[in-house]
Amino acid sequence: MMHLEELISVMEIPPIARSILSRSLPELDRCILHDPMAPMRRVMGIATLQISATWPQGLRRLLATEARSLLNVSEFPASENDYCTDLSPIYTALKEDCLESVGLLMNAGCQFCFDWERWEYTPDLSHECAAVLASHLAKRRQALLRIAQRRLGIYLSYSPLDVADGIAAQLSSTIWNARIPISPCLIVEPDYATIYHKHQLPIKLFPIFFEKGFWHTKSHDNMGLTPVMVWRAPFWPGKQFSLGQPSETLTWLNN
């Protein structure tokens, strides 16, 4: 059986892709030095950031190039009738439990939201990855609040350090309507209620988000539901589910 290095050497792929697949930082540096636009080229339709999502050292180097503009690319070549799971760098890093890459991508400003199609694997999201994700999302909520306070003079009763998750949708909409430019990663979808209303977020991870400042556990969504009333992903048919910890967490959430 051929080793990965041998297989890569005989494959007809661009040098930039070969350097990423072989996890060779010196080779990656040579590719970029020789052709600064190489990181922007796709390999069989896949962007370099997608390929390097689980290789933090290479990902960090690529984020310092023009490839940073591909931060949110998620397309993956597939035939017309094929179902295609999202393969954006951040979701790939989370799925593969690559903590350092998650931090790098969130720091770089990648967009993130809990989406059912992308999050079919959330029950497997590790506590460590969830903590990194929660920390960065908390900073984004704080940034959104500070912009509203400083630029529009609203929600001044909130501390600038508050993780204003329960009013994130209102903040985002108000700032957008005021035509104040903000990073796309701060924008929250109009129907967003709180992180706990996202049924894709496993119940077992709730305490992690609470520890990071997401305290709006009793807020209502646009249907009047509190988080404890929301139908959860682990309850869907086909999902492995144990009543132990989720039951305890639901009790904690309701108190």
Rank of each mutant, 00 (worst) to 15 (best):
I147S: 00
H136A: 14
E189N: 14
P190E: 11
N177R: 13
I208A: 09
N177C: 10
S183T: 05
V188W: 08
A164F: 00
H220P: 04
I175L: 02
I195P: 01
K139I: 05
L145V: 07
W215E: 14
W215K: 13
P160Y: 09
I195W: 02
L152F: 02
E189A: 15
K218T: 14
A193P: 04
Q149P: 01
I182K: 02
K204W: 06
V188F: 12
E189F: 13
P207K: 08
I154W: 07
I203P: 00
A131K: 13
L205H: 10
L186G: 02
I208M: 06
F214A: 08
K198T: 03
H127G: 13
Y158G: 03
C129T: 15
L144K: 00
A169R: 04
C185A: 14
K204N: 11
V163C: 09
E189C: 11
F209P: 01
F206E: 12
F206P: 00
T174R: 12
R141F: 06
E128D: 10
V132Q: 03
L156N: 13
P202D: 10
R151S: 14
A148S: 06
V132P: 01
H136E: 12
L186A: 05
S135K: 13
A138F: 03
K139E: 14
F206V: 11
I147F: 02
I195S: 08
E189S: 12
R141M: 06
L186C: 07
A193H: 08
P184D: 11
S126G: 06
V132H: 08
L156D: 07
R150M: 08
S172H: 05
I195L: 06
I180G: 01
G153A: 02
A143I: 01
A193E: 08
L144G: 00
H136V: 05
K212S: 14
T194S: 08
I154Q: 02
L125T: 14
W176P: 01
D165L: 10
I208H: 08
D191H: 15
I167C: 05
H197G: 01
S219H: 13
V188G: 11
I195G: 04
Y192W: 12
Q142L: 03
P207S: 09
I208Q: 03
S173E: 13
A148N: 00
I175C: 02
P202F: 09
F209T: 06
